[in-house]
């Protein structure tokens, strides 16, 4: 969709390229837009599956933004989701504000924690950073469990829904919009000079510093943005499901997002979207058809993760990139033979 680097397209595809899309990508979005209107996808449970797919897709995009480009795996990602969700839910419950406004407060809250984490973990790299974010996540989940005067702990916090109607369709379009917003905002960031700096820091921090890229600034910016969108998605999660428990902050949730992000491929924001919808769909189908075997879908998750890491570490995005580059190479070879 976006990551081809040497393009001077004209017309529509050039215009689309400026906002991080390609004709194929636009087609995909239109497809996703009309999918819940077409049978058999127009049944309510199917739309619910699509929504959970879109939630994971959006989360995978913002996860990959720091994990893929900067090389900092935010292993406490689910805690940022949860923080956004809880902030939004508590605000809308106590002040009676519409959830459409409070999810942005939730996102700001998560972003604030993201700034703090980014600044504090500046000296840490690699495994250190992973452990640090992980511990932050565990601590936040523990706090949520224990502060039951605020979060009602494991009993679950009621959240006001976005829409009065019983249909899930408006929710689907809302999360689709959030997903697109996440993708476009982060994609534009990656396309700009900031993206170049992120990549440079991710590949070799010393070399980046020597070339005058200040890692502090870029790491904090990256982390903040990633956490902002995590909070936004968490807010949607809270008001969509209507109930929030500390389970949302569990490492298991991070792992779900992480698996999708890596199956989609690192260093490609759109890989997460491509991987999430079919994968979540297959998982839900499997879970509903094999309900007497609990946890079988998670086993398949694990097997997929291991297989991808061992046999094809680039993921779906790498597969597509390989495909297009092979096509270009073949074309060049043909032209060369004609010239001879």
């Amino acid at each position: 969709m976006t990551q081809s680097t040497n393009e001077n397209h004209t017309g529509l595809s050039g215009l689309l390229n400026k906002i991080c899309l390609s004709p194929l990508g636009l087609l995909g979005i239109v497809f996703l837009f009309f999918l819940p209107l077409v049978p058999p996808f127009n049944q309510d449970y199917m739309i619910r599956w699509l929504i959970s797919g879109a939630i994971v897709a959006a989360a995978a995009i913002s996860f990959d933004f720091s994990a893929g480009y900067l090389g900092i795996v935010n292993f406490g990602y689910a805690a940022f989701l949860g923080l956004g969700g809880y902030t939004s839910a508590i605000l809308s419950n106590t002040l009676g504000i519409s959830p459409f406004i409070t999810i942005f407060f939730g996102a700001l809250m998560a972003a604030t924690l993201g700034v703090l984490t980014g600044i504090v973990s500046l000296r840490l790299r690699g495994m250190f950073a992973i452990c640090f974010t992980w511990f932050i996540g565990i601590a936040l989940m523990g706090l949520c469990m224990k502060w039951d005067w605020l979060t009602r702990g494991p009993l679950g916090l009621q959240c006001t829904p976005f829409f009065e109607s019983n249909s899930s369709l408006p929710n689907y379009y809302l999360i689709l919009a959030i997903m697109l917003l996440t993708y476009l905002a982060l994609g534009l960031m990656i396309k700009s000079n900031y993206g170049l700096a992120f990549r440079a820091i991710g590949q070799n921090m010393e070399a980046a510093m020597t070339s005058g890229v200040h890692p502090t600034k870029y790491r904090v910016i990256n982390f903040t943005l990633s956490c902002f969108f995590a909070g936004l998605i968490g807010g949607f999660y809270a008001h969509y499901y209507g109930i929030l428990t500390p389970e949302l902050m569990h490492t298991q949730k991070t792992v779900e997002v992480l698996v999708i992000a890596y199956i989609g491929g690192r260093l490609s924001l759109w890989g997460g979207i491509v991987a999430a919808f079919p994968f979540i769909f297959a998982m839900e189908l499997l879970r509903s058809s094999l309900s007497d075997l609990p946890g079988i879908n998670l086993i398949i998750y694990g097997v997929f993760l291991i297989a991808i890491m061992v046999y094809y570490p680039g993921g779906v995005a790498f597969f597509f990139k390989n495909l297009t580059s092979r096509k270009i190479r073949r074309k060049e070879m043909q032209q060369a033979s004609i010239a001879q």
Binding site: V73, I130, Y301, G302, V310
Partner: peptide
């Protein structure tokens, strides 16, 4: 390896 061990743990 980090990701593989996570997968292993889930399995």
């Amino acid at each position: 390896c980090f990701l593989i061990t996570i997968g292993l743990s889930i399995i």
